[in-house]
Amino acid sequence: MKTDQSKGQAGTLESGDILVFIDLSVQEKGISIDLDSPSIVPFGKQIILTIKDTLVNLGIHDAYVKAQDRGALDCAISARVETAARRALSSTIGEVGRCL
């Protein structure tokens, strides 16, 4: 398995899920989020809040997150973000393939 420093991914593009990619090797301070979602108007702010809260709870304050949402609920978003973040922390993106 290929090892990629500080990057992690989790989730799928299935309906009701979210595909989250997290890069912890960013120079900038803070969490920047690139969100694509079919529910961006009614729930965009809430999704971003959930992603940030999940990361902060894991002690992560600086990261780049690319999130491709397919209508996931908050519980799913938070689970995918946490998994992606833990993978990034353990630096083994190779894990991803099996868990998709």
Partner: peptide
């Protein structure tokens, strides 16, 4: 309860 309260456009 499941989705959260949607914001109007």
């Amino acid at each position: 309860r499941i989705s959260g309260k949607p914001e109007d456009p």
